[in-house]
Design a protein around this nucleic acid. Sequence first.
DNA 1: TAGATTGTTAATCGATTAACAATC
DNA 2: TAGATTGTTAATCGATTAACAATC
Lengths: 231, 231
Amino acid sequence: MPERNVSKSVIKRLPVYLRILDQLIQRRVDMVSSKELSNESGFTAEQIRKDLAYFGAFGTRGAGYNTVYLRERIIKIIGLDKKIDTVVIGAGNLGTALTRYNSAKNPYVNVTAAFDRDSRLVGKKIDNIEIFDIEEAPRYIGGQDIRVAIIAVPAAAAQEAADLVVKSGVRAILNFAPVKLHVPEGVHVHNADLTIELQSLIYYSSAEEERNERLKKETKDGKSDKSFPLE
Amino acid sequence: MPERNVSKSVIKRLPVYLRILDQLIQRRVDMVSSKELSNESGFTAEQIRKDLAYFGAFGTRGAGYNTVYLRERIIKIIGLDKKIDTVVIGAGNLGTALTRYNSAKNPYVNVTAAFDRDSRLVGKKIDNIEIFDIEEAPRYIGGQDIRVAIIAVPAAAAQEAADLVVKSGVRAILNFAPVKLHVPEGVHVHNADLTIELQSLIYYSSAEEERNERLKKETKDGKSDKSFPLE
DNA sequence: TAGATTGTTAATCGATTAACAATC
DNA sequence: TAGATTGTTAATCGATTAACAATC
C-alpha cells in the first residue's frame, strides 16, 4: 500500500503545495527546494519534506524538487488528475458566488449544476451553469456519478440537503451552513462556516492586554457572580 | 491574568459553542450539559469542558451550563460584546457575497464599507453598504478605527491590499486570496482559501482502495521513474 | 441523600521540530 | 569532490482523551 492513513493536517497542506507549484510552473521555474516552498507556504521546510515523504520520495538530494513532476504526483495523490465534477446545493447569494468562484478560480473542479428549491430561481443560469429544482438532485447526482457536493443553503435546510445528496451517492460535502451535519460513516464533511472564521479571528484583533482588561472589568462590574480562579 | 495563551484550536471552537448557545436560547432552553453541546458541535464533552475551563468555571456541577450566562461569557472572551466593525476589500463576486453574507448572517459583525479599485464599482452599493475607491481605505480605516478586514481581491493584488490595511491600523485579516500574506508581527491572518478547502475534501471523496489503485497504476504506467518505497 | 455533571489532573496520543545520514 | 538538500529517525512539544474527585 502506497500510504497508510495520513493525517488530515497533512492532506490540508497538499493543495497549498499544489497552488504554489502551479504558480512556479507558470513562471517557468523548474526546480524548487523545501526551503523555497516554506517561504511561499508558511509551513516549515522540515514539515513539507515530511508531508511529501508520506507518499514517496519525489525530490533529488542536493537539488530539490522538480516542479512539474511534484505537481503531477500531488494531483494524483489528491485525486485531481481528472477534473472533478461537483454540484452546488443552494443558489442564493453564497451558492451563486461559490458556483462562479469555483468555475473561475478552481482549475481542478467543474461545477456542473446548481440546485435550489425556490421555483423562481429554477431554470435560470449562473454564468452557464443551470439551476435545477432540488427535487431533480438525486437523479442528476446519481446519473452523473457526482461524488462531491457543496452545500450553501440556510441552516434549517442543510441537514435535509445533506441527506439528499448522500442518498444519491455523494461521498464528500463542503458545508457552508452553520450546523453540524450528521452523515453516515464514510461520508466526509468539511465545514466552511464563514461567520465562525471571522469570529475566531476577532479574538486576535484586540491586543492581549485589552482582552484581559475586558474580562477583568466584567467580573468587577458585578454582572457576574462567578470569579476567575486565577488572577 | 484571566488566561494564559490559549491555543488556536480552542479559540476556533468558541464560536461554535456560541452559535449553538444562540440556537438554544432562541428555543428558550436555559440549561445545557457538555454532553448536549457535544452532540450539537461534534466535539467531545471532555474537550468542551476543558476548553471552557481555560477561561473560568462557568457551569454548575450536576446541572450543566446556563445558556444565557455561558453565551455572555463567551462573547466577552472572543470580544464580541460590542458589534465589531469590519471592511471588505474587493467588491467582485466573492467580496459582494461576503459583504451580504456577513451583514445578513453574522449578528456580531458590521460590514461598514467595501473597497475596490475598479472605478465602475465605486459609488455603487451592496445592499446598503457603499463601495469606495481603494485609495480611500487608509483614511476610512484609520478614521473609523477598524481593526478587522476581509480581503477578497485577486491573488496578485492581495499583498498590496494587506499592506494597505495593516498600515491603516488593521490587526486581523480574513484572507480569501490564494496567497500567503506577509504581515508584521502582531497582525493575525486567517486564510479561507475556498479552492483549497474543496481540493483537500476531494482527497476523501474516493474510497481508500480507489486512491491506492490510482497511485499504483501511475507507477506501473512507466510515467514515473521513481518507485514507492512501500508496496 | 443519590444522581448527575462539572472542573481538573494524569495518561495517551499525535503532530511538529530537530538532527543528521544518505546522496545527488 | 564539495556543497546542497533530501528523506528519515529520534526528541520534543502540544493537544486530546480518560479518569475521577468535587460538588451541586
